[in-house]
Design a binder for these strands. Structure first.
Lengths: 97, 97
DNA sequence: TATGAAGTTAGACGCTCGTCAAACAAGTTC
DNA sequence: GAACTTGTTTGACGAGCGTCTAACTTCATA
């Protein structure tokens, strides 16, 4: 189990674009999503940057499938590290619209 | 009831100094604390800045008592807006040490 | 093998952030 | 009223962020 740091995690989640990524991955649940499947109103370079931030904060994991890079929410690891946190953030994101 | 925005809230909580302020206010519960009572390893100008960020994000409320400015956690408002969020962040901050 | 699709990297650009010292404001106390 | 305490504001500085375009890599397919 790695060291996920709380300020770093909250910072990763404090950007609307990244919150949208996390929300999409949560809805998709198993299987994950490729970067292209999550449509964001930014260039692909910027999108790639946001995925990197989420990965380095411990929020998502990525693996390659052919030419696609699939992202998965690390729900279990996050739940073990900070119980209830991801859930309440996702509920908050839902509540906020 | 005002508009507390989720990315703004998470950003306010994503700084170690501000997380420490929130943690202290939570421990104090009723009555609140003055800025001086929460000892931070920064100048008073910087501390004042962090209190301002928390206030503008909707995390704390402030009122004056003589020469002191008392800060209170807006637990109830936050609970109504984003149920469970503040609690899980506080538990996470506790868990992280 | 050449073309295309999906992402990453590098470099640049404004903007914001966290920090400080210095000056200021408001209340308290002698 | 003078000195002190508590906190805010202003202006500055360096670092980091979010964004883009352009060039590159890797895999797949025609």
């Amino acid at each position: 189990m790695e060291e996920i740091d709380l300020p770093g995690l909250l910072h990763a989640l404090s950007d609307p674009m990244r919150l949208e990524i996390v929300r999409s991955l949560f809805c998709a649940q198993q299987g994950g999503l490729s970067c292209k499947q999550i449509e964001l109103p930014v260039s692909k370079a910027t999108a790639s940057h946001h995925f990197k931030v989420l990965r380095e904060a411990g929020v998502i994991a990525q693996h390659d499938e052919g030419t696609r890079r699939i992202s998965d929410l690390r729900s279990d690891d996050l739940e073990r590290r900070f119980p209830g946190l991801l859930d309440s953030v996702l509920r908050a994101a839902q509540a906020e619209e």
